[in-house]
């Protein structure tokens, strides 16, 4: 199966990735090759197979509903690109 440039643009948008027009043909080619590779899966009938989501059959652990984390806002925000008065700054969203 071959992807079109418009498919790559759509996927890149969904993934929130800026891809330049100049790079698009290479992504179309490479992604089409990868989709062809994974297409080999279709040769096998899996109608009655139970999907395997995880390598170990384990149930999720429960823990008491208690606060275990302490507030470390300053420490975490020290590595942020832009903060002010304890909040992360991004370009204006609401006019």
């Amino acid at each position: 199966m071959s992807l079109q440039p418009s498919d790559v643009e759509k996927i890149a948008h969904l993934a929130r990735l800026a891809v330049s027009e100049q790079d698009t043909p290479a992504y179309v080619r490479n992604l089409s090759n990868i989709i062809d590779l994974v297409g080999q899966m279709n040769a096998v009938d899996t109608t009655h197979v139970t999907p395997m989501a995880h390598p170990l059959d384990m149930a999720a652990r429960l823990r008491p509903d208690a606060v275990t984390e302490i507030n470390q806002r300053e420490r975490f925000q020290a590595i942020a690109p832009e903060v002010d008065a304890g909040v992360y700054l991004v370009p204006k969203v609401i006019e």
Partner: peptide, 12 residues
């Protein structure tokens, strides 16, 4: 980026 896009595609 290729892998993110393949992943996005197969989950779309």
């Amino acid at each position: 980026k290729r892998r993110i896009m393949v992943g996005t595609y197969v989950l779309s």
